[in-house]
């Protein structure tokens, strides 16, 4: 009976899981691009830009994800009719950028100063040295801590449920309403899906970390 409920609604859970994965990927890409920018600014820019980047980082790290979701969803709605998915991707993506900037900044600081000096010694500009020597090493070193951040964001996509994104939790909610109950079974099924996604993501990222390993660069 309970199994039948789960079995019959498997397509809906799968659909929700697909949205969950899409949201996680989108927000992580936004976070990677913006976070790398913020990290570079914090590592290399003059103090006014550095201060601005630090304030942005502190703001997004201090405020709960749910509050950010509502702020972005309703805040943007005032002047632009935004739907829930992009609002969620933006809110969670910028929050992730704050966390990722910390990771990148730490990884940049861990690249020995001699690496940039050597790049400059063969005539590369500072920007080229950062781009071709420091950043590739920093990004490579960041994969480990980045894996934790990615897994944490995968779980936090469930909070997008609160502004109406039809991801895994919302689908579970629909199934509960449509079948008049079975909360325990349906939410447990959702938990299993999240667990499977987490394990899969962890496996893939650990594998990537190993495959991209460079002797002398791994920790």
């Amino acid at each position: 009976m309970i199994y039948a409920v789960i079995w019959d609604n498997l397509p809906y859970l799968a659909e929700g899981a697909a949205i969950t994965v899409a949201l996680a990927l989108t927000l992580l890409v936004i976070g990677l691009v913006v976070g790398t920018g913020l990290g570079l600014i914090q590592a290399y820019a003059g103090w006014p830009l550095r201060l601005a980047a630090t304030l942005i980082e502190r703001f997004f790290r201090a405020i709960p994800a749910i509050v950010l979701l509502f702020l972005f969803y309703y805040g943007i709605s005032v002047f632009y009719n935004i739907s829930a998915f992009p609002a969620a991707a933006l809110a969670l993506g910028l929050r992730s950028a704050a966390y990722q900037s910390q990771i990148i900044r730490g990884a940049i600081a861990a690249v020995p100063a001699g690496q940039l000096a050597a790049a400059r010694a063969i005539g590369m500009t500072r920007a080229a040295g950062i781009r071709h020597v420091v950043l590739p090493q920093a990004l490579r070193q960041a994969i480990g801590p980045w894996t934790n951040e990615a897994l944490s964001e995968l779980k936090d996509t469930s909070l997008a449920y609160t502004i109406g994104v039809v991801e895994l939790m919302r689908q579970a909610d629909y199934i509960v309403s449509a079948t008049y109950g079975h909360q325990l079974a349906v939410y447990s099924a959702a938990a299993v899906v999240y667990l499977a996604l987490s394990l899969a993501a962890n496996w893939a990222l650990t594998r990537a970390d190993r495959r991209l390993a460079v002797p002398g660069l791994s920790h």
Binding site: P112, G114, Q115, A117, A118, A119, R120, A121, I122, G123, V133, P136, Q137, R140, V214, G216, L217
Partner: peptide, 18 residues
């Protein structure tokens, strides 16, 4: 451009690790 015309060898090599 001027540095590109001067070769420099460091004490601890500073080969690009990656």
């Amino acid at each position: 451009a001027l540095r590109a015309r001067i070769g420099f060898v460091f004490q601890d090599f500073n080969l690009f690790t990656h």
